[in-house]
Design a protein around this nucleic acid. Sequence first.
RNA 1: GCCCCAGUAGCCCAACGGCAGAGGCGGCGGACUUAAAAUCCGUUCAGUGUGGGUUCGAUUCCCACCUGGGGCACCA
Length: 842
Amino acid sequence: MKDKHRVEAFVSAQPETGQPARDSYDFAAMEAKWPSVWEDLRVFEPADDGSRERRYVLDMFPYPSGDLHMGHAEAFAMGDVVARYLRQRGFDVLHPIGWDSFGLPAENAAIKRDAHPAEWTYANIDTQAASFRRYAISVDWSRRLHTSDPEYYRWTQWLFLKFYERSLAYRRKSPVNWCPYDQTVLANEQVVNGMCERCGTAVTKKNLNQWYFKITEYADRLLEDMDQLEGHWPDRVLAMQRNWIGRSEGAHARFAIEADAGLPGREVEVFTTRPDTLYGATFFVVAADSDLAVELVAAEQAAQLDDYREQVKSLSEIERQSTERPKTGVFLGRYAVNPLNGEKLPVWAADYVLAEYGTGAIMAVPAHDQRDLDFARAFDLPVRAVLDTGEADPAESGVATTGEGTLVNSGFLDGMDKTAAIGAATAKLEDAGAGEKTVNFRLRDWLLSRQRFWGTPIPIIHCPDCGEVAVPEDQLPVTLPEGMRGEALAPQGTSPLAAAEDWVRVSCPDCGGEAQRDTDTMDTFVDSSWYFLRFASPHFADGPFDVDAVNQWMPVAQYVGGVEHAILHLLYSRFFTKVLQDMGLVQFNEPFSALLNQGQVINGGKAMSKSLGNGVDLGEQLDAYGVDAVRLTMIFASPPEDDVDWADVSPSASARFLARAWRLGQDVTSAVDVDRASGDTELRATVHRTVNEAAELINSHKFNVVVARAMELVNATRKAIDSGPGPADPAVREAAEAVAVLLSLFAPYTAEDLWAKLGREASVVTAGWPRVDEQLLVRETITAVVQVQGKVRDRLQVPADIGEAELQALALESEAVSRSLDGRQIRKVIIRAPKLVNIVPA
RNA sequence: GCCCCAGUAGCCCAACGGCAGAGGCGGCGGACUUAAAAUCCGUUCAGUGUGGGUUCGAUUCCCACCUGGGGCACCA
C-alpha cells in the first residue's frame, strides 16, 4: 500500500498528539464504547406498530464462506446509508440480516476435515456476525435467520409442496447439465460459457430424472412486469433479464413428413421468426439429440444417425457451442412438405439445431440465415433468395442477407416488403390450418434438484404403488439425516442422502406401504427466493410468513447487492413472488421496488485474488484506520455502482477528515439549547443548503457527493470557528450538529461520539434529519454571468430578485461586453434572470 | 454478431442545456517544530474520446465512429 508509512505514523501518533486540553480522535475507544449503547437503546429495531410509515431496506444476505471481506464491507456500507438515512427521515425502517447457509462449500470443507457441514457453516456465521457488529451495520439482530435451520427450511419445503400442488414443481427425465467435478446437476443459469459457474469445470450432459420449477409458465409476466422496475433497477440488470427470458415473436408452421418405406406420415411443427421466407426453405433440420430424429429416420439411414448421435454426445458443451465449428449433420432419408407451396424438402439431423429451443426442428432458409447457409454449403444443398435486399446473392457470397427488402420467388408474397410478408404468410398458414402466430421464449424451466447433502431435502416420498406422494404438512420439516459427516458426504454421482438407509425408508403417507424418500436436495437458490419475506415475521410458526406482516413491509424499498445475481437470484425471487401472489399470500407482484448494484472492491485495476497476491484484508484495514474510515473510503471513492480500486483511495485521508469533523465537537462553546436562529446567517445558509442538497443526493444514490458536501460543511464550520463568528456562535453549533447527522449515515461511531461531545444524548441515529429553513436557501445576491454569443465576458453581482429589463440594462453597460461586441449590432438578448444574460450580435 | 454502461486535470470523481471544478488523492509552497510526524493554510494542472447535428449557448440532447467494461450468443 502506497501510503502505508503515513498510516502507521498517523496511528502511532494518536496517544501522544494534540494540545494538552484536547482529546485526540481515538477510533478504537469509540468502537469499544458505542455498540452496547445502541443495543440498549434498540435503535435499529423497527417499532413495527404502524405509528410511522414503514420502509424495508435489504442487503443481499451473505454466504458464510469465512470472515467478511472488502466486498461485503462495500455492499453493506451502501445499504446502511439508505437504512440510516430513512431512519433519520422518520421512517420505521426494517433492515435485517441473515445467512444463506446451505451450499456446497460447507460440504466440501466437511469432507476435507472429516466434519459436519453445520460445524463449518455456523462457526463462519459467528465470525461474520461479530464482524458485522464491529462494522456497525444498523440491522435488527433479533430477526436474524439461517436458511439451514430446520425452522427455516421446513417452510422452504412447505413452499415446494405448494408449488407441487399447483403443478409448478414436477419431475422429468431429460438431458441436463452435469458438472463432473461437483458431481451434481446445474441449472441453465449456473452454466457460464459451457463451464460450471462455481468450479469452472466443463459441463457435460446427462440424461437424468430431475425436479423442475415451471418458471416458463411465468415468462410473459416476468417480462411484462419489468416495466414497473424501469428506472428503479439498473438498466443492465433489466437488459440481462430480458435477454435471458428471450421472447421472440414468430409463427409455428406444421410440415407434413411424407410416409416412406414402412414409416407412417406425420406432422412436425417448426418455430420461425421469419414466416416471410417460407418460400426460401430448401431443407428441413431436426435436432440430432432429440427423440424426433430417432423417430423420423428411415431404416436405411438409422445406423448413420446412431453414429452421428454418438459423435455429438462426446462433444463438451464448449465445443458444441463454438460458432467456429464447421456444420455437421446426416440426411434422415425423409422429406417434409412445405405447407405453403407443397415443395418437398429433405429432412436432416444436425447439432446446430437445439432440442430444447422452439420445437427442436427448423425449416432451413439458407439465403437468409447464416447458419442454414453454412450448412447448405457444407452439404451442397440449394440456396434460394426470396427477399431482394439489394445485396450480393447469398449463394455466391456465402453471406446470408437479413435486412429489409422486397419478396421475390414467393408466389402470392411477391412484391411485399418484409413486414407485410410476415403478416401475410402467417395469415395464410392460419387459413390452411398449418400454423399460427406465436411467441417463443428462450427461458427454460428451473432445474432445482441437486445430488448433494447440505441443502433442503425435497419433501416427496416415492411409493411403488402410489407413485410420487407429498410429505404431509404436519410431518415437515423433513430434516437431514443425523450422523452423516466427512467422507460419507463425498460426491458419487448419486445423492449422499441415498446412503442413509434408515432415513430413506419410510412408510407411504397414502397407503402405508414401504416407500422411499426422495434423496435429492434443493438448489440453494430456492432457499434465497423467499428469505426477504421471512424477515417480516422471522419467528412466525404457522407458515412461511405472517401474511399481514409481509404485506405491511413488502415490497423491499431498496435492495442492495452485486450484479452477479442479475439473472439467477433476482429472476427466481421475482418468480416466487408472482406464484405467491397467485396463491393469494402476497399483494404485490414484484419483490424489490428498487435495486442498487454496488461495484466491486478491486486492487490495482484487478479483482483481488490469492494467485495475484493483491488481496486486501478487511480486518487489517479496520485495525489500521478504524471502521468509520474504511466505510467512508468505500462510499467516497466513487458512485456506488462503480468499482472501488483500493490502490486509488486513501483510508488515511478519510480518517483525517473524520478527525477534523470530530474535533468540531470540542470547539463548540454554545449551550445545547441555544437559539440557532440567532446564529451567523452566512454559516446557517451553508448548513441548510448542504442538508437540503444532501437529501436530494441520497435519493439519487450519489453518496460520494454527499460526503463531499459534508467535507465542505466541515471546512466552512472550521473557518467560522477560527476566523469567522467564532466558537460561541449558535450557527456553529447548528453546523456541527448537522455534520453529526450527516456523518451518522456513513461513519456511525464518529457521528455518535461527536454528538456526545456536543452535549447531546444518544443516539444520533434517531436525532432526525435537520429541518430545512426554506428562507435560508434563498440567496440575496447572485453572480450573474454575462455572455456574448455564449462566451462568458463579465460577471455581475445582482440582487436575486432582479428583473429582466434591469439585468439587461446592467449587462449592456458592461465594458467587457462592449469591448467584445466591438461595435456590432445586437441581434438578440437571452435573459435568464437572475443568473445569466447572453447577448447575440448580428 | 446483438444488447447495456462508461470515457472530464497525473489519479479518484463533481457539474437542473447556462461561469468546466464541488470534494478528495498526489505534487509544490508555507505556518507550527531543534527536527520530523501529525495538524493547519495556500497553490498547481484539463476544455470534457473523435467527427457531425440541434441550440443564442452542449460535458449534458441527437446521429455516426473510436476505446474500455459488462451481458448474451448455432435461440431458428
